[in-house]
């Protein structure tokens, strides 16, 4: 069989194009990814913290530590509660002993005892990962070990994180830390293992006063979405352009 050079080149080109097309036309998805892409398109997890309702009992911190296997006495936590005191002279003092795990039973704050008559206003502010729409932690990870899921939650691959700490540095909210046992970056995941099965997060379930709520921001009938749409809410540190998705009711200007 003989073949001219022109024919040979033409057939080669055809084969090359034909074999390249399917590869570029289809992106291979794992079953989980395919499922997430279809289902998660109508889910965007969001959170509401009602600071008026928080009494600083610390049940959420306890529940979170146990649920998410963060050593109970390790000096780090996925969620925490801050106590703010604004004094009559305009000064602000705040603390979060053990992340508020055992509640706030001491009058002493920042090494000084504040007399109740000096206090102008006081409140508690629970904090957790803001699951930012534009997460700086994901941007800076050098190996792609931390990523944003289709339903808006930022997760960490414990088998891939190299433990450089860049994401910890990049988070303006200080929610990240090294896991005291696994020695990789760690943070609040909105209890992803629970919410993806239709349950609430551990902290939401543990809160006796309903100060914490989680919901689907893409569902207009979700109570959380309704609150955000109809009430006056605020987010933390919006000046960083991270678009946080944890909304606060009653956020004071003194909150850091």
């Amino acid at each position: 069989m003989s073949i001219s050079r022109r024919d040979f080149l033409m057939s080669t080109l055809k084969v090359a194009v034909a074999s390249a097309l399917p590869l570029s036309a289809f992106k291979f998805l794992s079953p989980a990814e395919a499922k997430a892409a279809v289902e998660a398109a109508n889910v965007r997890w969001g959170f509401i913290v009602d600071t008026y309702k928080c009494v600083g009992c610390g049940f959420c911190v306890k529940a979170c530590k146990i649920e998410n296997e963060i050593p109970y006495d390790a000096p780090v936590t996925r969620t925490w509660v801050e106590r703010y005191l604004i004094l009559k002279d305009g000064r602000m003092v705040a603390d979060t002993p053990l992340g508020g795990r055992d509640g706030f039973t001491e009058l002493k704050i920042q090494d000084e005892v504040i007399e109740p008559k000096e206090v102008a206003k006081a409140y508690f502010v629970p904090k957790l990962c803001n699951q930012c729409e534009n997460p700086p932690c994901v941007q800076v990870c050098p190996v792609g070990a931390t990523y944003q899921t289709a339903d808006g939650v930022v997760l960490i691959d414990r088998t891939w994180c190299i433990g450089c700490g860049y994401c910890i540095m990049a988070c303006p909210y200080g929610v990240r830390f090294f896991h005291p046992v696994y020695k990789v970056a760690e943070k609040c995941t909105f209890c992803y293992h629970r919410i993806s099965k239709g349950m609430k997060t551990a902290c939401v379930d543990a809160c006796p006063f309903g100060a914490r709520k989680i919901g689907n921001l893409k569902d207009p009938n979700d109570p959380v979405t309704k609150t955000i749409m109809t009430e006056r809410v605020a987010v933390l540190k919006d000046e960083y352009g991270t678009k946080p998705q944890v909304y606060y009711i009653g956020l004071d200007e003194n909150v850091r």
């Binding site: 792609g144 994180c161 433990g163 450089c164």
Partner: peptide, 25 residues
């Protein structure tokens, strides 16, 4: 960097799976 990494044995990942939005990659 190798001294600093919590997981020094995974340090090679920076070369193999660089995530290009990160300055370290």
């Amino acid at each position: 960097l190798m001294f600093h990494l919590q997981q020094p044995l995974r340090g090679m990942e920076v070369f193999f799976t660089p995530h290009f939005t990160s300055a370290i990659s």
